[in-house]
Design a protein around this nucleic acid. Structure first.
Length: 566
RNA sequence: UGUCCGAUGGUGUAACUGGCAACACAUCUGAUUCUGGAUCAGAAGAGUCUAGGUUCGAAACCUAGUCGGACAACCA
């Protein structure tokens, strides 16, 4: 029985093309049916939602096929890399919910082995030391439509090459003076096969190997070999490496080592978001955001601070699928994923962000009482709490209107609404200041409606949230919105760049009134402020100052309605 | 005037590998509701880039074209 259900479920979930390839490999008993993947970040920046897609794919694939997934740092360029990034990457992958046990590897762990591979290539007459400058090499490489020309150093003897390469390693030469190149084909239609550089000289300390090396392998000469050393069966990467695959395979063949299979998929693009590490770094360095973990950033740490859950991000990665065509996914889908998750989990609470004072004229002057509020209507096990009620309360300014449109359910003079979990109140009058702004609303309450329902079952159209003025807790609320105003900020018009489309309203800081339950909120705690949105306590909070980040608003069909009428 | 890759509703992903396009998001109705949330029911929206071909039958296979992307760091 169980079996049948599982089968049906499997049919329902579409199998992406990578898993189809793996299924086929397993059928053919390739690698004895085992699957071993890796997630290979370069520690030169923080991970973002695009990496999350890759992480979920690599670790998820290993899980699905009962295989393993390594975490491997691709640290072959000491000039750009740093331990700060290593630490953040570790933290983010863990937070997303994946574990690599003791399989934390570094390409730099393999430098000695990779060096030996290079020597082997030289010995086979398949690599040579070249004295051309970077610029000369670039010119000689030709263009995609024009063949390159061979380096004058291409035909050095094997012995000479071995010696020179040893000397490079020994530090005899300055940065840029010599490189080791593969000897392949300067006329290849694939630019990457035109005698690519294998090793370059960089006299810079490496975050792990210190000053042990002054020559470092290039990506192409390190990545595939690292995969091979780790017995990676399926080396999953993004589309731009597709043209590198012939070179990847060439090294494996010439070196006669274990052959992983490189498979490429399309990277994630999100509307109203930039994903380039370089551009994200620019936002941080130019202080256009407050750091890598600014809640507006698409970084994992930014999303975490914004209030996203790992589950929601994993679910998102699952839903968007994996394919080879370029894509631009609507952020609304990401937002749907977090709403769906938080709706099930978030503690409900009442908070007033734009307070308007309401005085209940017929409520006894010094009385206070508790009302019972449900913590999460989606999850009974979360129980109830007490919310204090009194003569003076705050309600949301938007929940009162002097001349409301016909389908306005909320409070206005002469109308009755329900205060959530408390009483029905009816508005009598308003008090205005000299500018004509409403400063107070006077109401009467019906003592027979405690808890929020009346004995006579009379209907009220609206239910609004409130906070007892006397008991309210003040808090700073950071209202975040999308960082860019343009769907694709990378597609800049003439004379503009992505920064021209930064949303000036991506952060608004206000002060709100919260129900006292929130007093003890800890950084990272997530709540639904009823009728407003999802919020989470920020790490900037202190014992005497609470700070909340808005993760996102609730869906608001009234706002939609209002927009339509305009 | 190169090589490689791709093209299915607004967006993304499917289609048991040849049997007349499904799911999710978004959109719009309606029901329901002590959150204008959630939930439930429903609607609209593509005939699969184009042209040929193979076939009883093509989104799928073949050919040509069109459009889009990647590739000319001593970056990854």
């Amino acid at each position: 029985m169980n079996h049948i259900i599982n089968n049906q479920e499997e049919k329902k979930t579409p199998v992406n093309f990578i898993h189809q390839i793996i299924d086929e490999d397993i059928r053919n008993k390739k690698h004895n049916g085992t699957v071993h993947t890796r997630f290979p970040p370069e520690p030169n920046g923080y991970l973002h939602i695009g990496h999350a897609k890759s992480i979920c794919l690599n670790f998820g694939t290993a899980q699905k096929y009962n295989g393993l997934c390594n975490l491997r740092f691709d640290d072959t360029n000491p000039a750009k890399e740093d331990v700060e990034y290593v630490d953040s990457i570790r933290e983010d992958v863990h937070w997303l919910g994946f574990d690599w046990a003791n399989r934390e590897y570094y390409a730099s762990d393999y430098f000695e082995q990779i060096y030996e591979y290079a020597v082997k290539l030289i010995a086979k007459g398949k690599a040579y030391v070249c004295d051309l400058t970077a610029e000369e090499i670039s010119i000689n490489r030709g263009t995609p439509t024009k063949a390159g020309i061979e380096s004058p150093y291409r035909n050095r003897t094997i012995d000479e090459n071995i010696l020179l390469f040893q000397e490079m390693r020994a530090g005899k030469y300055k940065d840029g003076e010599k490189v080791l190149r593969a000897k392949i084909d300067m006329a290849s239609p694939n630019m990457h096969m035109r005698d690519p550089v294998l090793y370059r000289i960089i006299h810079t300390d490496h975050h792990r190997t210190g000053n042990k090396w002054c020559i470092y392998p290039m990506y192409d000469f390190a990545h595939g070999q690292s995969d091979s050393i780790e017995n990676i069966t399926h080396s999953i990467c993004t589309l731009e490496f597709e043209v590198h695959r012939p070179l990847y395979d060439w090294f494996v063949k010439e070196l006669e080592i274990f052959a992983p299979q490189q498979i490429e998929f399309a990277r994630l693009n999100l509307t109203y978001t930039i994903m380039s590490k370089r551009k994200l770094l620019q936002l941080v360095q130019e202080k256009l955001v407050k750091g890598w973990d600014d809640p507006r950033m698409p970084t994992i740490c930014g999303l975490r601070r914004r209030g996203y859950t790992p589950e929601s991000i994993r679910n998102f990665a699952e839903i968007i699928g994996v394919a080879k065509r370029d894509n631009m996914i609507d952020v609304a889908l990401l937002e749907h994923c977090i709403r769906e998750d938080l709706n099930k989990k978030a503690q409900r609470v009442m908070a007033v962000l734009n307070p308007l004072k309401v005085i209940i004229d017929n409520y006894p002057d010094n009385k206070t009482e508790d009302t019972d509020a449900i913590n999460n209507p989606e999850d009974e096990t979360m129980g109830k709490r007490k919310v204090p009620f009194g003569k003076e309360i705050f309600i949301e300014r938007e929940d009162f209107m002097e001349d409301p449109p016909k389908n306005y359910y909320r409070l206005s003079v002469g109308k009755e609404v329900r205060l959530r979990y408390a009483f029905y109140i009816k508005c009598l009058s308003v008090v205005k200041n000299s500018q004509g702004e409403i400063v107070e609303v006077h109401c009467t309450y019906d003592p027979e409606t405690k808890g929020g329902s009346s004995i006579d079952k009379r209907k009220v159209q609206g239910t609004i949230h409130w906070v007892s003025a006397k008991d309210a807790v003040d808090a700073e609320i950071r209202l975040y919105d999308r960082l860019f105003t343009k769907e694709n900020p990378d597609e800049a018009e003439e004379g503009k760049d992505f920064k021209s489309y930064l949303n000036p309203d991506s952060l608004k800081v206000i002060n709100g009134k919260l129900e006292p339950f929130l007093k003890t909120a800890m950084a990272g705690d997530k709540f639904q402020f009823e009728r407003i949105g999802y919020f989470c306590a920020d790490k900037d909070s202190t014992t005497n100052k609470l700070i909340f980040n808005r993760t996102l608003t609730l869906k608001d069909s009234w706002a939609k309605e209002e927009k339509k009428n305009k």
